[in-house]
Computed example of a mutant assay.
Amino acid sequence: MKKNTRIKFKRLSRFLKILSPFLIINGLILNANANIISSVKPIAFITQAISDGVTNTDILLPDGTSPHTYSLKPSDLAKIKTAELIIWVGEDLETFMPTVLKNIDKNKQIELMDIPTIKSLLRTSTNNHGQQKTHTHNNDYDHDHHGEYDEHIWLSPKIANEIAQAVHDKLISIYPDKKGIFDENLNEFTVKLAETEQNIAKKLINVQNSGYFVFHDAYGYFESQFGLKNLGSFTINPAVQPGVQTVYAIKRELKEHQAVCVFREPQFSPAVIEKIVNGTDVRIGELNPLGTDITLSKNAYSQFLLKLTQQLLDCLDKKLM
């Protein structure tokens, strides 16, 4: 070997030794990004239960943001491009997703609203399950974008089982050697959810005749399954104070329907709600349909449903007052 060649070889060896840790770190970063992404947190609760022990679950929308109005950041697009699987609800809920996903392999996506077993369980946006419900809207209100069907499907334990099955089947196609883990995770999830449903039914049986109003008509699946008495909904923009006529109209509705509670959500201004219930006997409660206060874990979905149940009881159950 010539002298110049030996010098070049030694330099290349030294360079590769210096570079190798960076290559390893970069590989780990790429591998860490190659995971599962769920659009909203409650879907991630279900996904995490099935993927636990094999791969990471990430959530696209940060806490406190709405899937109706969220704008993707460059970092979100980077996550989507490197993900092995993207799970989202549907284009009427996450209006920004179809454009982003048009160049992503269809085999790397699950659009939940398109799954036949989920389609058969959907309720329409106007399906009130035989109850006389009031939907009050005027110029003071901020309307969510709703399609033909109610897309808050994560609030249905029945649909949650179908989501878990779909995620399970897709993960097996990605990681066929991990089938045993996914099978065990799915079985655990199904058994745990059945126990949780029984627990919730027992807890809510005494408040099924207690009428209430919500500001966001998101809870239809949950209410239908557990026989709750939602009298109506108002979708208030917290940035806009309701006018005098609006406040009067809502108060009249509350009295006429003999509501026990009005439920706000974390993003709504307490001052607005207090103004509406002032002079009535109606109590104020809080519901969190996105589980923003729940930590992502294997049992997070059941924790989410139980927390929602407790929030309902805290306001509806007179014995707890």
Rank of each mutant, 00 (worst) to 15 (best):
N4F: 07
F9M: 14
F9R: 14
K10L: 14
L12K: 13
L12P: 00
S13Q: 13
L16S: 14
S20W: 10
P21T: 10
F22S: 06
F22Q: 04
I24D: 02
I29F: 12
N33S: 14
S38H: 09
S39W: 09
V40P: 03
I43L: 13
A44G: 12
A44D: 06
T47E: 13
S51Q: 08
S51F: 03
T55W: 02
I59G: 08
D63Y: 02
H68L: 02
T69K: 00
Y70I: 03
Y70N: 04
P74E: 12
D76R: 09
A78R: 13
L85S: 04
I86D: 01
G90R: 03
G90K: 04
L93P: 03
E94R: 13
F96E: 04
P98L: 11
P98V: 11
N103P: 02
K106F: 09
N107G: 14
K108D: 03
K108F: 02
L112A: 05
P116Q: 06
L121Y: 04
S125D: 04
N127G: 06
G130A: 05
K133E: 15
K133I: 15
T134W: 01
T134A: 11
T134K: 07
H135V: 13
T136F: 14
H137E: 13
H137L: 12
H145N: 13
H152D: 07
H152W: 04
W154L: 05
S156V: 08
A160L: 04
E162K: 14
E162G: 04
K170S: 06
L171K: 08
Y175K: 08
P176E: 10
P176V: 08
D177I: 06
D177W: 00
L186H: 07
E188Y: 08
F189W: 04
K192M: 10
L193H: 01
E197N: 05
N199M: 09
I205P: 01
N206E: 09
N206M: 09
S210A: 14
G211Y: 02
G211K: 12
Y212F: 15
F215Y: 14
H216A: 07
H216M: 07
H216R: 07
D217G: 05
A218I: 03
F222T: 03
E223C: 09
L228Q: 07
K229M: 07
N230D: 13
F234G: 01
F234M: 14
T235N: 12
T235R: 06
I236V: 12
A239Y: 10
Q245P: 01
T246L: 05
T246G: 11
V247C: 07
V247A: 08
V247P: 03
V247I: 15
Y248K: 15
A249V: 09
K255T: 12
Q258W: 00
V260K: 15
R264Q: 11
R264I: 13
E265V: 09
P266C: 03
S269Q: 12
V272G: 00
I273D: 02
E274M: 10
V277N: 07
G279I: 03
T280G: 08
I284K: 05
G285Y: 06
P289K: 00
P289V: 01
T292C: 00
L296N: 10
S297K: 06
N299Y: 01
A300L: 01
A300R: 01
Q303M: 05
K307H: 09
L312G: 07
L313S: 06
D317E: 14
